[in-house]
Amino acid sequence: MSAKGGAVGVHARALGLGFLLPASILVVWQALGMASGNPRTPVPTHVVSSAIDLVASAELPLAILQSLMRVFAGFAVAAAIAVPLGLAMGAFRSVDRNVDPLVESFRPIAAIAILPLAILWLGTGTAAAVMIVAYAAFFPIVVNTVAGAKGVNPTLLRAASTMGLSRLRIVRTVIVPAALPAIGVGLRIGMGVAWTAIVAAELAVGAKAGGGGSGGIGQMMFVFYAYSIELNRIIVCMIAVGLVALALDRLLRLAMRLAMPWSAT
């Protein structure tokens, strides 16, 4: 009983300590912003009212929705290519030897670097955004899948082959289940990278293609910067970007836990 009360007390104090710094940052920010006298200077209270406006007018939710649709589309494309390819590379040496140079050559090229090509080929709309997202998410998924498939305990493989299983059947019954946790990690990292990439792509499209409407939260931010200089609204968008990133990660974690109850991650 007393131990439990103590634990709660410790918890409450830890929480209090955690609030201390963000709270004092907010207070100092508000004070400095009000002291500056410039009505453009963002302050927490204006950020909150901007957030209410943007949500009430459905502008922000719609922009997020548009960005999310692109992320899901690009992510699905990436996963559909990367997981089978990664499994094949992990299970068959010949595939690995021949494909790995290609993967390793393109991996260091940041997704955003191919944005100009994507715009050139597909225009400034959704198709280019999906291509960037797919490119960005592809590499973490493929690399983790290969690692997972290669990391299968060789004794398990030998045990399966002594039972007379064919190579293809071993892939299905041993390699795939054993690689699942690593694939899950790859998907999670890939999703995080995909979200970062869509924001970057939309920002860049906004910056380079002018206001012309591809939409999404990234471009919305750029419009607030370039056309109306509404810093409060930019900060609302930044917070929204962070919250969506967090929600996506949590969602994927939950999905992994449900799909693989035996895995610790």
């Binding site: 970062t196 970057a200 970007v241 962070g242 990133a245």
Partner: peptide, 9 residues
């Protein structure tokens, strides 16, 4: 969670 890129504007 707020990526560096989101800070650009």
């Amino acid at each position: 969670p707020i990526s560096g890129i989101a800070w650009i504007p």
